[in-house]
Amino acid sequence: MSGAPATTEGTEAQHGAGFPPFKTESFPSQIFWLTVTFAFLFVVLWRIAGPRIAQALALRKGHIAGDIAAAGKHKSDAEAALTGYEAALASARGRAHAEAEENRRLIEADVEKSKAAAEIEFREAAAKAAAGIEVVRAEAAKHVTKAAQDAAAAIVTRLLGDTVSPEEAEAAVKATGA
C-alpha cells in the first residue's frame, strides 16, 4: 500500500518508520470499529445465538431424560412381570404338589380298603375250608370204624368159620377203643 494516496497527515505518518501497533493516529478508528463490531456480536450472541443453543441443548437433554425414564419404566414393568410369573409358577407348583399328595393318599386308602376286604374274604374262605375238612374227617372216621367192623367180621369168619353179626362186630370194635 505504499502507493496509496495519503489522505491525512495521520495516514502519511503511518507510512513512515515506526512500530505500526503503536501509531496512535489509527487508534480512534480502531476503538470505534471495535465498539461497533463487539457490540453487534454481543447482541447477536446474547439475544439470538445463546438462547437458541440453550434451547437446543435443553430440548435434547429433556428428550434423553424422557427416553431414559421410559426405558426405566419398561425395565420395572418387565421386572414386575417376571416376579408375577415366578409367583404364579410357585403357586401352580404348590397346587400340583398338593393334588399329587391328595391322590396318593386316596389311592393308599383305596389299596388299604381292598387289602382289608381281601383279608376278610380270605379268612372266611379259610374258615369254610376248615369246616369242610372237619366234616370230611368225621365222615372218614365213620367210614374207618365201619371198615374195621367189616374187616373184623371177615377175619373172624375166615379164622373160625363163624359168622359174626354186624352188631357183634360193632360191639367188639368199640370194645377195643378204635
Partner: peptide, 15 residues
C-alpha cells in the same frame, strides 16, 4: 477522523 480500515473490514468479517 474515523476511517473504514482493513482492520475494520476484518472485524466485520470476524463478528
Amino acid at each position: 477522523p474515523i476511517y473504514f480500515t482493513n482492520q475494520a473490514l476484518f472485524m466485520c468479517v470476524v463478528v
